[in-house]
């Protein structure tokens, strides 16, 4: 039905594996985001490509109870990325991916804070996976 393995020899995934250096992180979110990208793209032994990114995260209150208690939060995330070929400096791929995670905020304050930090880490994983899927599809 027209699908071929992306990591077959010479295919898109295979050409990128272990050849992409990811931009160093500068915040806790970016630490998780860059970590996930490096894990999925394979540690860059010979960096033929550089992947740069910028992240934007916004917390909005999803659910407010009639007593004005905030019961759900949603974390909206947007990642803009560019894959550059180091040798020529040309832009091999790029784009913007958006997604969200959410968490409940009812119950203990410790549970709320922990859930928020976990939701942020999960959002980074989802955005990174969206980018990896796109890179495999558009591999140069």
């Amino acid at each position: 039905c027209g699908f071929t393995p992306a990591y077959a020899p010479g295919a898109g995934g295979d050409r990128l594996r272990g050849r992409v250096a990811v931009q160093a992180p500068d915040s806790r979110n970016e630490f998780a985001f860059a970590g996930r990208l490096s894990a999925r793209l394979g540690q860059a032994s010979t960096a033929e490509y550089t992947l740069t990114y910028s992240l934007r995260v916004e917390r909005v209150s999803g659910g407010i109870s009639p007593a004005n208690d905030i019961t759900r939060y949603t974390l909206k995330g947007e990642a803009t990325y560019t894959l550059t070929e180091n040798a020529t400096g040309t832009r091999a791929a790029g784009g913007t991916v958006r997604n969200f995670t959410s968490w409940s905020a009812t119950g203990s304050t410790v549970a709320g804070v922990t859930a928020e930090e976990a939701a942020a880490e999960r959002l980074m994983t989802i955005l990174a996976d969206d980018i990896v899927a796109r890179l495999i599809a558009e591999a140069p």
Binding site: T101, S102, W103, S104, A105, T106, G107, S108, V110, A111, G112, V113, T114, A115, A118, A119, E121, R122, L123, T125, I126, D129
Partner: peptide, 11 residues
């Protein structure tokens, strides 16, 4: 206490 709010998503 810190793991009562579990979320099931793609991650």
């Amino acid at each position: 206490e810190d793991s009562t709010l579990v979320e099931f998503d793609e991650a």
